[in-house]
Design a protein around this nucleic acid. Sequence first.
DNA 1: AATTGTGAAATTGTTCACAGCA
DNA 2: TGCTGTGAACAATTTCACAATT
Lengths: 215, 215
Amino acid sequence: MSKPTNKKISESTIHRLSIYYRALVTLENEHYKTISSKELAKREKLTPAQVRKDLSFFGSFGTRGLGYPVAELRNRIAEILGLTRLWNVALIGVGNIGSALVSYKEFAKQGFNIKLIFDNDQRKIGSNHKGIKVSDFKDIAKLVASEKIDMAIIAVPAHTAQATADEVVAAGVKAILNFAPINLKLPAHVILRSQNMCIELEHLAFAMTNDVISD
Amino acid sequence: MSKPTNKKISESTIHRLSIYYRALVTLENEHYKTISSKELAKREKLTPAQVRKDLSFFGSFGTRGLGYPVAELRNRIAEILGLTRLWNVALIGVGNIGSALVSYKEFAKQGFNIKLIFDNDQRKIGSNHKGIKVSDFKDIAKLVASEKIDMAIIAVPAHTAQATADEVVAAGVKAILNFAPINLKLPAHVILRSQNMCIELEHLAFAMTNDVISD
DNA sequence: AATTGTGAAATTGTTCACAGCA
DNA sequence: TGCTGTGAACAATTTCACAATT
C-alpha cells in the first residue's frame, strides 16, 4: 500500500522531494489547487519527465489531463520525508554556527525542534539561548534518553568533532547532521549527513577559475 | 598542458576534489610523503578506483608501485579548485547565519576573505563585525567595484532573497553562494550554489522514517 | 610486490515518447 | 485535448580488471 513500486528511491530523488515540498508549500500559499509536472519543473529548473518519475515512485497521485493536487501532494511528500511529526534535536556546540542554528526559524517550521543545547565550555553552560539552557556535554547520555532526542546537530570545531560524535553515538543518538569540516567515522547504523560550507565556496572558485558557464 | 584529457570533469568529481584536498592537508600535517589510492579511499569512504579515476582527469600524478606525492597532489588540487589565490567575498545580510559566517575561520583558511558586509537594517549599518564595518546595501554597486569583490554570500531571509540576489548581480557579482531556502532565478552567466540546511535535516528524517540503514 | 592509469562492463540516473485516462 | 505514468533508449557515473610501471 505504501510501497507501490519496489524500486529503490535514489538519493537524488529524496533531495528533489525536499525541493518539491518547498515548492508545494509556496504554491499552496498562492492558492494553487493543482500543478502540472511541466509547471512544477519550470519553477524548480527540472524536467517534467523527472518530476513525474520522482513522484511516481510512491504511487499515482496525479490526474491525467489536470496535474497534481497541490495540498494532497504536499501532504504525501511530508509523510514520505517524515515531516508530519516533530523531531527532537540536540545541538552540540554553541559557538558561531551553533548559535546561528538555534535561531534559524526554518528548522522549527519543518518540525525540527531544538530541545537541548550542549557545550563543554564552563562559561557557556547554564547560559540561555533562545530560551534553552545550555547543558554540560558530560550529561548527554542521561538527557538524550530523558528528552527523547531523535537527532543531533554537531557544530563543534573540527579537531574535537570525531570525539564529540563518538560520545553522541554512545548516548544513543541514531542520526547526526555534522557541520564540522571533517569526515566522521561512525558505526553503520548511525545516519550521517554533513554540511561543509567551504566545499560550496570551493565550487564557486573552481567554476570561476575554469570559466564554467552554466547554460 | 593543464588539460591532459578533454573529458568534462563532473560535478561529483569536483565535489570529491574538495574532499581529497582536505584529506591531503591532514595527511601533510601527519607527515605523510605519499598516499595510495587505496588508503585515501579508505579514509574518505570511497573506492580506490574512483580516487584514481578522479585524479587521472588532470594528468598522471601518481607513481606506480608507490602512490601519490601528498604535497604535490595537494598543490595541484588547490590549483584546479582555484585555492592558490585569494578571493574577495561580500556577505549580504548579517543576521543569525551571516554573523556566524563572518566568524567562520575555515573560510579565511581556504583563501576566502570576507571583505565587505552589507545589510539594509539601519541599526546594523555602521556597526562592526570582526573588524569589518557593515555597509548600506544601497551602496553595493559602488563598493563591489572598488573592492574588487569576486563572490557574494547571500544570508538574508527567504522573502527578500530574490530581490537581493538581483541587485547583487546588477552590481556585477558573477558568483553567489545562497543560504536562503529558495531557488534563486539568475542569469545564466552567474554561478550559483545553494546551501539549504533544512534539506539535510529532512534527509535524516526521511532515513529514520524509512529505516534506511547505510551499510 | 605494489600500485597506477584506463578501456570495458556494470550500474545508476535522466530523458524520450507514447499509450492510457480524465 | 492535456497531462500522467512508465517502459525503453540514452547518458552519466562507478566499478572492474588488468597491462604498465617503479
